[in-house]
Design a binder for these strands. Structure first.
Lengths: 326, 326
DNA sequence: TTGAAAGCGCTAACAT
DNA sequence: ATGTTAGCGCTTTCAA
């Protein structure tokens, strides 16, 4: 049998309450000598606290539950990394639930599982979420944050996300300032993320009095493959610059362009943007991407625990200069 | 107040025992009608089981604790990925503890924390471990596995690791068969991992009746940077081939060689090997590395839960052909 | 098929 | 400074 505080109490000739105090380092409540003696005995007996019992009695669980809804791109690892680091710093444990890949029913089930653990808060890393899933979360009165999701149709959701409108605008403005007029937007999808980047793109173009040809917007899924494939469609359009929906799309575009014999840096400017759905680390030069996700992770924990308002993470541009090094 | 089985019992006009049974789906123990009615009420009341209470009462925790001892290279993410997937499949939860970077005191503390959670088993992902830490684990009678550690001085440790001797031998033999005689070994370190790869290298060279010049062995830390730096020392040695201590070292060597104007594929053959300390994903062509770690993750869970003997994961060579594409 | 009751190991008043 | 005691919410014999 594993030793319990009861065993230790008997061995030390004190009550369980005293043992509990000693092991919790409540030194102002008991004589240092007693405390030290008890801890020594506990150590000798190979005692380990039973967290379940402790949690049940105290109603405090210093743990954060993280739900991962897998996506094609593996950006979640960087976020989890950030969460782990900060959680530890704050003295919290992290319990991770995997919700499979884009499986609503399973995500719902996973949300329930997370709730059963009475965590101090829940972080849901996902690309999508359904209303009923959020409803379960908010009904349970457990603080939660949707990491990397922002749905403008549901301003009441608690979220942490990249500011995708700003990202799109920033990238486009960057190219406009370089003197470009015919700028494409390649590789975004129809999710909020993509639509907001599109919005930012449109905003920048309009602000500069440039006309937008709807054909310049090419849909994909933020992947390297998307970039490679979409280059064919871009090729005939006499664009001089492209805002790539993600850093991976940018790399895909450039590789395809190189294979087609186009000298990218001279004939076509490509700016890749990172954000919620980009994240494969492609080369040592692109590690900035990693840092942004890391920051998203740490920000999430802070925001969750302090119950602040919704947060947008500013996100960096991945400049053509870097990408072209590949 | 969050609803408890007591509340549900009252609402349903039954005892808490019945509610417990209904919610645990022990349908052979009660009338389906009762069971369904109780579950409906529980759902309406927004009930979520309290895992702590459940664990305490049943003494069963379907969770696996994973301790991450950070290293420079981020291979642990792939392992954790594998663990998450298989754990979920087996109905286990995963709780993750971060033990900082190469901090023995903190690792010891983290091991104790993991033990407090009464997990079904503990997976320790680390490059190093100290005897007293293993002692704590084995004394606690909680099944554990040291993932990616193999220390031949401690055959009693429970571990899962790459077979580093085989890896070194495999890579070297591969080059010998290509007709090379002057083969270097670059970028390994002084840990067991490195020494075993060296052993494999020596084994292969000896078996082929080739002399080994001790100067041909260059120490580093498996990183891209190591490869870049060590190229200088390799340059003057008139080697025709190199076994790189990791895939990253191989890439570093090749990049340095290119910068120095050497045509690698023609003048110098480089074989990179992956394993416990390699793991940055460098390009889409190198994703095999990822799969190996993934496999290490899933194997760990299986091995832990079924308490099998120590396991070696066979590890693939990363061929020069792939690496040279970069 | 259901209920009563004991107790898992710990914490936290309250009492001394 | 330490002990007594009543739970925390659930599971699980044992009875009915």
């Amino acid at each position: 049998m594993k030793p319990t505080i009861k065993n230790i109490a008997k061995a030390a000739g004190v009550s369980t309450a005293t043992v509990s105090r000693a092991l919790a380092n409540k030194d102002q409540l008991l004589r240092p000598a007693t405390s030290a003696r008890i801890r020594k005995i506990a150590h000798e007996m190979g005692y380990h606290k039973n967290v379940a019992a402790s949690q049940l009695a105290s109603k405090i669980t210093k743990t954060i539950a993280v739900i991962i809804n897998y996506t094609q791109t593996n950006f979640w690892k960087e976020i989890v990394d950030g969460i782990l680091q900060q959680a530890h710093q704050l003295g919290y444990q992290v319990i991770i639930f995997s919700a499979g890949e884009n499986d609503p029913a399973r995500l719902t089930q996973t949300v329930n599982e997370a709730l059963e653990h009475q965590a101090s808060g829940i972080l849901l890393i996902s690309g999508k979420i359904e209303a009923n899933q959020v409803a379960i979360l908010s009904r349970a009165h457990t603080p939660y944050r949707l990491v990397s999701i922002y749905d403008r149709h549901h301003p009441e959701y608690r979220f942490i996300s990249s500011d995708n409108i700003a990202i799109g605008e920033l990238a486009t403005t960057y190219l406009i300032k370089q003197g470009h007029h015919k700028i494409g937007l390649v590789g975004i999808d129809h999710s909020s993320t993509g639509q907001q980047r599109l919005l930012g793109y449109q905003k920048a173009m309009t602000a500069a009095d440039l006309t937008i040809n709807p054909d310049w917007v090419h849909y994909g899924n933020y992947s390297y493959q998307s970039g490679q494939q979409l280059y064919q469609q871009v090729q005939g359009q006499s664009l001089t610059a492209i805002v790539a929906g993600s850093d991976m799309v940018a790399v895909g575009l450039i590789k395809a362009a190189q294979q087609a014999g186009t000298q990218v840096p001279e004939q076509l400017s490509v700016v890749g943007i990172d954000g919620a759905l980009a994240g494969e680390i492609v080369s040592p030069e692109l590690t900035t991407v990693k840092q942004d996700f890391f920051r998203m992770g740490t920000t999430s924990v802070d925001n969750l625990l302090n119950d602040q308002a919704a947060t947008f993470i500013p996100t960096r541009l991945v400049k053509r200069a870097s990408v072209a090094k590949l």
